[in-house]
Amino acid sequence: MNYRKLGKTNFNVSEIALGTWQVGGKWGADFDHKLAESILHEAVDGGVNFIDTADVYGGGESEKAVGKFVKSRSERIYVATKCGRQLSPHTNEAYQPKVLRQFVEDSLKNMGLETLDLVQLHCPPTEVYYRPEIFGLFDRLKEEGKVQNLGISVEKIEEALKGIEFDNVTTVQIIFNMFRQRPSELFFEQTRKKDVGVIVRVPLASGMLTGKFSQESTFSEGDHRNFNRHGEKFDKGETFSGVDYETGLAAVEELKAAFPGYENLAPMALRWVLMFDEVSTVIPGASRPAQVQSNLQAAELPPLTSEQVKAVSAVYAKYIKPSVHQLW
């Protein structure tokens, strides 16, 4: 495993980490703590030292599983969580310092921790990024020892660029993958200038970039890949990276030609992300230990060849860029 500096936090984190949206089982299924524990052990045994969770994952069960797990290991494991998505309705007006403070304290209680290494605003409405009092709250929480660092999780480049204008924002979590390449432009340039850590989520486009889906693939009722393809519940960019399903399948078929011999494209898709020095860590999820093993393979792969990089760019330009690039 290789390690990279996470921006102004100065944490050295594994370049491949673990996202825990579905760590207790498949999306929409009941949370399985025994399964979560096995996935977490698999990740840390493989060199992972950074775990990303959120207070809404599994209705708080993900945080509980992560907190229990971290206390069971002797290694230094950095824990990042998120707050804000519990708000209903999830509006700018609902974001208030008092409410966010309570969310942070609830997360500490869920995980049984005295301080949070990193707490991230969880994809708030764009207007929130224009409110200094929201960001000022986390300075006070830091002074109180409840949090060590503030980060933001964003949907749009606009939000990321606005958020890092606040000096106390140390990290940005953003969607970046072979199907969502826009962050590599102005945003990455600004993170270098401001020493902001980049946490890449949805690196496999909700599994599309594994190359294992087809027209016949089905998803359970509680799986966002079933109910959120057009943004019915939250930003559609979180589901297949906002790419139309059929278009994604066609693009993946062409990608397969660039990576002959890889039945599972996931390691190559992750390796592509890691070729960008601005990326601090990538946080693929896993619903079983075997998926963790697959993801960790990316750390051992050589960089993509120039021909493979060109092939990825060509597929993006042909299938994805016209309909996706400017949306986020």
Results as ranks from 00 to 15, higher is better:
Gln215Glu: 13
Ile174Asn: 04
Asp45Asn: 15
Gly163Gln: 01
Leu270Asp: 13
Pro183Val: 03
Met1Arg: 08
Leu150Tyr: 05
Glu221Gly: 10
Pro125Phe: 15
Ile283Pro: 02
Leu141Glu: 01
Pro289Val: 05
Arg229Thr: 05
Glu221Gln: 13
Lys82Phe: 12
Gln96Trp: 01
Glu75Arg: 07
Leu274Thr: 09
Ala36Ile: 03
His41Met: 09
Pro303Asp: 11
Leu137Val: 06
Leu209Ile: 02
Gly197Val: 12
Lys64Tyr: 03
Asn10Gln: 12
Glu144Ser: 01
Arg192Glu: 14
Leu121Asn: 05
Lys156Arg: 06
Val273Ser: 09
Asp139Pro: 03
Phe11Trp: 08
Asp45Ile: 10
Glu42Pro: 01
Asp277Trp: 10
Gln308Glu: 08
Thr91Ser: 13
Ala43Glu: 05
Asn149Met: 15
Glu216Phe: 08
Ser206Arg: 01
Ile16Gln: 03
Gly7Pro: 12
Val119Thr: 00
Arg225Ile: 10
Arg73Cys: 15
Arg101Cys: 07
Val198Lys: 09
Glu143Cys: 08
Gly59Ser: 10
Ser214Asn: 06
Phe240Lys: 07
Glu263Ile: 02
Asn92Ser: 14
Gly28Met: 02
Val99Ser: 09
Val70Tyr: 03
Ala80Pro: 07
Glu254Met: 08
Gln181Trp: 00
Ser306Gln: 15
Val315Tyr: 08
Lys310Arg: 12
Thr171Leu: 09
Phe276Gln: 14
Gly151Thr: 04
Asp167Phe: 00
Glu254Lys: 12
Tyr245Gly: 08
Tyr130Gly: 01
Gln120Pro: 06
Val200Asp: 03
Arg85Ser: 11
Asn10Met: 11
Gly242Glu: 02
Tyr316Glu: 08
Val56Ser: 00
Pro125Tyr: 13
Ser323Val: 11
Gly231Trp: 05
Glu307Gln: 13
Ala29Asn: 05
